[in-house]
Design a protein around this nucleic acid. Structure first.
Lengths: 198, 198
DNA sequence: GTCTATAATGAGATAGAC
DNA sequence: GTCTATCTCATTATAGAC
């Protein structure tokens, strides 16, 4: 699993990141001011600017760390599972777990409009974690586990439902935990792209 | 189809809305200042505030209009098509068309973080258009056209892939028009939820 | 209803002591 | 490295003539 960013005991850098993640996830980047982060983290303005340069630097650091940890977790799944179906299922399970266990992290990663405040960022869909997920599906297609079709369509079709469900959960539109829906979600996801042979 | 909001010939109200839609879609709500809207619309600050009260009022008006037109278009599809499969397929087709023909509108409707600037708004997933889409799927389940499962899961599974693909297209991560992917997308979407009997 | 000019606020960022 | 005090400036919003 992903480790959460530490909060109270850690150094100022991590305290700022933890506070920023929570504030960004709940109010959004633009509705969070640097003074808000200063208050919530207990770190002074000067220290914040010393470590991160500017407000955007906080968001960038957070984004990079989130993306990297996500990628590692997905890569670990890819290595542990040999076949495409169990890889994809485990990835959906991971996403559900993170969304339940660390909703702020998932919220920041998923629905934050990063382009609005991180000008040089690549679109979420092109980020390395998503590319990795797409790669798994593409490999499944070469192996005959996934039906022949456009690779992008296959990738969005197998993960799109789960991502949408996560978004609903984060928005408070779903009362029960995501795990309750895992079996149904996975059934739909795999039917969408599974090879007819299998 | 949805009518675009008028731009140059219309009254100040519509000019402001058209300019705001474009600016919000491209830069986001928070990166768009009222002076930006004033410049782009050619309507004065005073007039803008006279009509909309405040900046949020512009976004709210836009949001309501977008949601309502969307709902009407979806409802028209529901009335025109008797069976669940052709209803869902037409809805995906509609979404693709809007995303290609009026990307600003789709962008504002889909990826705008409305909660960040419209405090009282209901989550996108609970908006009436989405509820309508969900209702169509639920009806299909009662009729036996859609497999028995959680209704929410069925709804996100049939539309999730298409929505994800639209997001990629809006983010510039997809070079070809969405229509090129319609058949593959629909095939996946319907396999995900179709009753085994059919 | 529409406009220009302006007020008031709070933001991001810096200076400089410790 | 950390802090407080402060600067600068763009933003939202208003006032009041026409």
């Amino acid at each position: 699993m992903l480790d959460s960013i530490p909060d109270s005991t850690a150094g100022p850098r991590d305290r700022v990141l933890a506070a920023a993640l929570e504030l960004f996830a709940h109010r959004g980047y633009f509705s969070t001011s640097v003074p808000d982060i200063v208050r919530a983290s207990g770190v002074s303005t000067g220290s914040v600017y010393h470590h991160f340069g500017d407000k955007e630097g906080i968001a960038r650091t957070l984004y990079d760390s989130v993306i990297e940890r996500m990628e590692q977790a997905l890569e670990a799944i890819r290595e542990r599972h040999p076949d495409t179906a169990s890889r994809c299922r485990s990835m959906i399970e991971l996403l559900f777990d993170i969304a339940e266990h660390d909703p702020d992290l998932m919220s920041f990663m998923l629905h934050a409009r990063h382009r609005e405040f991180l000008p040089a960022i690549t679109p979420v869909c092109s980020s390395r974690p998503f590319q990795l997920m797409r790669g798994v599906v593409a490999e499944g297609m070469r192996r005959g586990e996934v039906r022949r079709m456009d690779e992008t369509v296959a990738a969005v079709s197998v993960f799109g439902g789960a991502l949408r469900l996560i978004q609903m959960r984060l928005d408070g539109a779903l009362d029960r935990p995501l795990n309750d829906f895992l079996d149904d979600t996975w059934d739909c996801a795999w039917r969408a792209i599974a090879s007819d042979a299998a």
